[in-house]
Design a protein around this nucleic acid. Structure first.
Length: 105
DNA sequence: GTGTTGACCACAG
DNA sequence: GCTGTGGCCAACA
């Protein structure tokens, strides 16, 4: 698998997450056969905030933290949270109950 | 080809 | 809760 396909598959996995569900950076990495590439998954998403309609706001950290979005600054995070809430996902203090919404790829 | 940088993770204090 | 450390891997300079 080429480096190029990696990011492509990340985005593809992202687009398969059902509305109202979330998955994690690790889970995506795992589904690609590279359980330890969570960090690289984040990179792929950052470079494609939208390509052009990828719901990357449904990807969160393993501990339920919302992770980043856009510049990873406060602005981006708030936007991500807003999108999640719009899908009936309860977000409390930049965190969610991962087990209630987890979607296994 | 070699660093450095992160939308990360796990574990230790 | 917090910070620090070591590890990971693709993208970038």
């Amino acid at each position: 698998m080429s480096m190029k396909e990696f990011s492509h598959r990340v985005l593809n996995a992202c687009s398969r997450i059902p509305k109202g569900k979330v998955t994690t950076y690790v889970e995506i990495a795992r589904s690609l056969g590279k359980p330890k590439a969570s960090r690289a998954v984040g990179q792929a998403l950052k470079r494609n905030p939208d390509a052009p309609r990828i719901p990357c706001h449904r990807v969160v950290k393993s501990d339920g933290g919302v992770g980043g979005y856009g510049g990873a600054d406060k602005k981006g995070i708030e936007k991500k949270i807003r999108l999640l809430r719009k899908e009936n996902v309860v977000v409390d203090k930049r965190k969610i109950e991962i087990k209630n919404y987890f979607y296994r790829l």
